[in-house]
Design a protein around this nucleic acid. Structure first.
Lengths: 333, 333
DNA sequence: CTGTTAGCGCATTCAG
DNA sequence: CTGAATGCGCTAACAG
C-alpha cells in the first residue's frame, strides 16, 4: 500500500503538502501541486479515507433509517437523499428496520459509535423520549413521520390538510358515508390525517362516525382485509379514503372480488401517489406526496445541521396535492 | 468524548485490556471483564469505530451498487443483502447509479479509498475490462447482471432457461407469432434471454423472426411505447414476452388503450415477478426471480470472499419459476 | 506557500 | 491472562 509518505518522497515535498493537495488544494502552489499529483499518479496512490476519518473525527457518511427499503414510497425518498448526499460528498448507509421497533432502536443507539455523521429517520415509532435524547446529542432529522417535539428538524407534508382534501373531494362527489382506513394509531401522522378527515366532515355538516375509522398498517393486505370484512358484514360504505395507495388498492381488490365496481359502487381515494397509482386500473385518485423532494430537503437540512449552520425553520412542510384519476368517478353535472 | 484510556483508568487496568474486552472478550478473565464493562457503563463509553477501522484497515461496510433503488426489483435484493450483512456486523452503503454509466464507474473506482471492504454490484454495464480489473484487487461479487468472466463470483438465475420457459408457455398456448421485448442488448442477461427465446422457438419448429425481437430498457414506458408502435403499424402479434414485468405492464396498458384485450387478443408474459405482477389486472403471468434470496446469496459469497475462504463454486444459479396467472389465458381443452 | 511535529483512538505485537 | 509500547495514515496547528 502506498501512503502519503511515499508520494511525498517521490515528489520531494513534505507529507503535509501532499495532504494539502488532496484536502485543501488551493493552499498549494500550482507547481508543487502538479509535482505531487504526478507522483501520486505514478504510484497509483489513493487517499486512505480511514485515516482521514479518524483524524477529522468524521465519516462523510450519513445513515438513513427506514421501515422497508423495498417499499417504493421510502425508496423514492432515499433517492432524493442520496442524490443530494452524493453532490456533497456524503455516502449513504442504509438501516432497514423491517418495521421492527427493536431494530429501529438498535440502529439509533449505535450511532454513538461514530460510523455516521448524521441520520435521517423515516420512521419514528419508538418512544419519543428516546428519539429526543438521541437528537440532542446527534445530528438527526426526521422525514415523513415525526413526533411532537419542537426541537427536532422535520420534513413532511401537512397531513391534516392532505386528509382534508381527500375527504372533501369525496364529499363534493356526493358521498356521506366515507370509511377512513387509517395508518397505525401510534404514528402521529395517522392522528393528523384522522383530524383532517374529521375536519372535512364537520365543515360540511356531516356526522363523524367513529366506526367508520378503521386502523390499518399501510400494507396492501390490510386494506384488502379491512374492506373484505366491511362488505361481508354489510357495512359497505359508498366511499373509502385510505392512508396509503397500497391499502387503497387492496381495498379495491376486495371490492372487485365481491362483484362490486370502483368507482360506480364505491369510490376510493388513496394517499402517497406511488407509481402504481397511475398504472393500476382503475387509476387511483390520491393525495400525492413529493417523495423525492422530501428526501432532498431532509438531506439539505441535515447538511445544515452537520455544518453547524443556523436553521431558521426546522419544520419544513411540503405541498401535497390531490390527484384526480378514475377511482372516484367524476362529478355528474 | 470518553476513550479507552478513560475506561482503563477507572477500571485500573491497561488500555490493552479494555480493548480486548471489546474485540476479543474471551482473552480476558471474567473478573476484569466485569470491572471494565462496569467502568465503561459508568462513563457511557462507546467504542470509536473510526479508530478501530484505521487500526484494522477495514470498515465493516460493504457497498451495493445498483441502477435504481426505487425499482422494487433491486430494492428487494438489497433487503436480502442487508439482512445477511446485519447479522454479520456489516453495514450497507448505497450506490445508486441512476442508470448512469459514469456514476457506475465512479463508484467502482473510488472503492480504492477503502471506505468499504467489499462490493456487490447489481449492474455491470461498464466495460468488462474495468470490472475485471476492479474485481482483481477488490472483493467484489456480481448479482443479477454479470459479465463473461470466469473469475468473478456471480449470483443470478439461468436466464436462458427462464426465457425458454416463458416462450414455451406461450407456444403451448398455441401462439406462433410471439414478440420478445428484450432488455438492453449490451447486457449479457438480455442476450441470454434472447437465446432462450430462440431455443424454444427452434425446439418447437417455429421460425425465428428477427423483427419480432425488439430492444427495450426494462422500463414501463419502453414496454408501452414498443407495443403502441407495433399496433399502430399493424404488426400486432398474438403474444408478447417481455424481459421485465414493468415492460409487460406497459405493453398491456398500450394494448388496452387500442381497444384490444389481454389475454383474449394478446397474451403477455413478464419477467421478475415483482409485487405488482400479482396485483395488476389482469394479473401477470411471469418468470419469478428469487430477489431476496439473490441478495442473501450474494452477501454470503462476499462474506466468504472477504474472509478469504475458499469458494468452491463462484457462479451460483438460483431457480426461476414460471408463475401462471391471468395475462395469458389458460389452455382450452 | 511549505515543513515540522504531534497525535486522533484503537489493536496488536512482545514480554512477563 | 495482563501491561507497555508502537504505529495505522492522515490532518492541523504552528513556525518559518
Amino acid at each position: 500500500m502506498t501512503t502519503m509518505v511515499d508520494v511525498a518522497k517521490l515528489a520531494n515535498v513534505s507529507n503535509a503538502t501532499v495532504s494539502r493537495v488532496f484536502s485543501n488544494p488551493d493552499a498549494v502552489s500550482k507547481d508543487t501541486k502538479e509535482k505531487v499529483l504526478k507522483a501520486a499518479e505514478e504510484l497509483n496512490y489513493e487517499l486512505n479515507v480511514l485515516a482521514r476519518n479518524l483524524r477529522r473525527m468524521k465519516t462523510e457518511v450519513i445513515m438513513v433509517i427506514l421501515p422497508d427499503i423495498s417499499n417504493s414510497f421510502f425508496s423514492k425518498i432515499v433517492r432524493g437523499i442520496e442524490s443530494v448526499a452524493m453532490k456533497n460528498n456524503y455516502k449513504v448507509l442504509l438501516g432497514d428496520t423491517k418495521n421492527d421497533l427493536d431494530l429501529e432502536k438498535e440502529y439509533l443507539k449505535n450511532l454513538d459509535q461514530k460510523y455516521a455523521d448524521g441520520v435521517i429517520s423515516l420512521t419514528a415509532r419508538i418512544d419519543a423520549e428516546l428519539i429526543k435524547e438521541i437528537s440532542d446529542k446527534f445530528n438527526m432529522v426526521l422525514a415523513c413521520e415525526y413526533i411532537d417535539e419542537e426541537s427536532i428538524p422535520t420534513v413532511s407534508i401537512n397531513n391534516v390538510e392532505g386528509a382534508y382534501k381527500a375527504t372533501e373531494h369525496l364529499i363534493n362527489l356526493g358521498h356521506e358515508k366515507i370509511v377512513h382506513i387509517s395508518g397505525p394509531e401510534d404514528v402521529i401522522l395517522s392522528q393528523d390525517r384522522i383530524k383532517g378527515y374529521k375536519n372535512a366532515l364537520n365543515e360540511y355538516n356531516l356526522s363523524v362516525d367513529a366506526d367508520l375509522i378503521i386502523e390499518g398498517d399501510f400494507s396492501y393486505k390490510s386494506g384488502y382485509n379491512i374492506m373484505s370484512k366491511l362488505i361481508k358484514f354489510n357495512k359497505t360504505p359508498t366511499a373509502v379514503f385510505a392512508d396509503s395507495d397500497q391499502m387503497a388498492i387492496g381495498a379495491i381488490k376486495a371490492i372487485k372480488e365481491h362483484g362490486l365496481k370502483v368507482p360506480e359502487d364505491i369510490a376510493v381515494v388513496g394517499f402517497d401517489n406511488i407509481e402504481i397509482a397511475s398504472i393500476y386500473e382503475p387509476s387511483l385518485t390520491t393525495i400525492s406526496q413529493p417523495m423525492y423532494k422530501i428526501g432532498v430537503k431532509a438531506m439539505q437540512l441535515l447538511l445544515d445541521l452537520m455544518g453547524n449552520k443556523k436553521i431558521e425553520n426546522n419544520k419544513i412542510q411540503l405541498e401535497s396535492k390531490l390527484i384526480i384519476r378514475d377511482s372516484c368517478g367524476y362529478k355528474s353535472r
